[in-house]
Structure formats: C-alpha cells, structure tokens
Design a protein around this nucleic acid. Structure first.
Lengths: 150, 150
DNA sequence: CTAGAAAAGGATATTAACATCCACATGTCG
DNA sequence: CGACATGTGGATGTTAATATCCTTTTCTAG
C-alpha cells in the first residue's frame, strides 16, 4: 500500500472534524464514525494536536476541533503522521550528488512530487460530504449510490 | 516513506540488470553494486523471476538476466514486489458503493493513479546511466557531478 | 469539593516488513 | 564422476508499524 494505515486514519478523522464543527468531537465519536480503533486513534489525534492541526479540550464536553480549518490541506495531515519524503540525495551512498540524482531516483522523486503537488492542492474542507453525514465521512446516501437501496 | 524498501531494492537491481546484459549477474554482484543485503536480494530476485521479469540460470556462470528488456516498465517491477493498490471500494465498510467513492478516497485514488500513470510511462531501459557504470547504478562520474570532485 | 468525562501519556502486545541463515537443487568445468 | 558455483526454498531472527491497556491529568457540572 502506498499510504500507511495511520495516514488513512488521520485523514478520515480530519475530514470528519471538518464536517462537524458545531461541537468538539470525542475520540469515541470520531472512532465510531471513521471505523478506526479508538485506542489507536487517540494516539493519532494527539500527534495531530502536537503539530497544531487540531485543538483539544479535556473534560466533559471536550474533544477535538479542527484548527486552521479554512486552509488545511491533505498534505498537512499526511506530513504530520507520515511525512512524504522527497528524495534529495541518492539512497546509494557513494557520493552525495545533491541535485544530480541518477535517472531512477530522479524519476521516483518526480512521482513523489506529483503526489505532493496533488495533496497540497486539496483542502480538507473540500472533501466534506454535503449531507447529514450522521454515519460516516462518506455519508449514507451518496455512498449507497443515488438510488439509496442495494 | 511512500515506496517500500523492497520496491527500492527491486528497481535498483532491475536497472542494474538492464545495464549489464553481456553476462548473467549473480546475486552477489547485484547486491554489491546496488548496496542491497544479498540474502534479502535473493528473495526479491526470486519473486521477480516468478513473475517473469527476469530469468535465472544456476551454476557456474549463472545469475540473472532481464527478460522483456525492451518494454519493461517501472510499474511492472513495482507491481511485482509491492503492488500499487488502486482504491476501488470505500475502505469504510458501510456499503460497497463501487464507483461512488467518498471525496476523500476519490482524491487519494486519483493520486495513486498519478503514480501509476507515471510509472507505466517509464521504461527501465530509459533509466540506465550511459557510462562505464562499474560501481553503481548511478555510475561514478554523473553521481559526483560534472566536476567530479566534491 | 466531589463525581464523572474526556484527553495525555506510558507500558505492553501483536503483526507485518525486513533481514539472516542454512540445507538443498541444479548447473558448469575438468 | 568429483569439485565447486550458483539459485531455490524453508526456518528463523530483528525491527518498525499497528494496536491495546491502564494510569494520570485536566476539565465541567453540580
């Protein structure tokens, strides 16, 4: 898999937060909605907090809310939990040749660059499903298709 | 890291094979040139053989040679050792909604698609460094830069 | 101040990726 | 045939990602 499980979890959760800005969302709520193990999600959310992507409040009525909601991108989230590492030096040790990567790594880095470019363009806010969204980040209706019945 | 270590190893080795078509290359030779643990490389080469990307010969004078050298692409290699998994159904189980991914996974899949597209366009043969290439897949001179001195 | 809700943080378990080692099969050379 | 070089395959070890559990801290309500 190209993207780690943790990236997947973090993105689901952030999208969920982006679509539930009325009140702080607890780890339990987010975990249930995004189908992520709650214990593990607690760790992920915590690291998102440390890098300032989300804010937390403890105690009753507490939970997580999105910080920088307006301009938060997919890349921000990805780079927090599992940074996209551009290839800047040849992984083969021989001589660090700076900008002169061999063709293979030049090509691989270009591919990574494509991902980076795609992710920096995508705002979290634009990934929010526009409906009641009670059940999942996908929402119910659109996920089941226009007909809504299987 | 976006690409697994195994992918990196496999690509280095295949590029090396593409640039050394005169005689079969042993695992030891490839391992030394590409700086990959030889024991592990043996496994990787074996799986490349099973999928037909390379051919092997045992015994003295044996080793690996590239099969399908002319049209082999980066994607072929990647998909052999660590397949690029397109997202075809929502990872959240609720209803398999086929082509109707939620915006998040639609976007992620598009990104994966970019990689796939980039990789299918890149032939291994085009990644070969055009010089003596005695030391590494990068070769010595180009890696150290035009000046050759650090 | 107490009770309870929730995040924070540490310790530990599980799993998969990565790596090593060894016995065996299969080839070449003389 | 014997000697040796090589890939093949199985067993096992190591490490990092993923996941679970428990205790502590911080908050709100009353």
């Amino acid at each position: 898999m190209i993207f780690s499980q943790t990236v997947e979890y973090a993105l689901r959760s952030v999208v969920w937060l982006a679509s539930h800005t009325d009140s702080p969302q607890t780890v339990q709520q987010i975990a249930a909605a995004t189908q992520v193990p709650s214990n593990y999600l607690a760790k992920v959310m915590n690291s998102l907090r440390r890098t300032g992507l989300v804010e937390s409040r403890r105690g009753l009525g507490g939970g997580y809310i999105l910080a920088r909601a307006a301009d938060l991108t997919v890349l921000d989230v990805v780079n927090t939990v599992d940074p996209i590492g551009r290839i800047v030096t040849c992984p083969l040790g021989l001589r660090s040749h700076g900008l002169n990567l061999c063709p293979l790594h030049k090509r691989l880095d270009e591919a990574i660059g494509l991902i980076e470019k795609s992710f920096v363009k995508t705002k979290i806010i634009d990934l929010v499903v526009q409906n009641d969204g009670a059940e999942s980040i996908c929402g119910d209706a659109p996920c089941a298709g226009p007909g809504g019945k299987s």
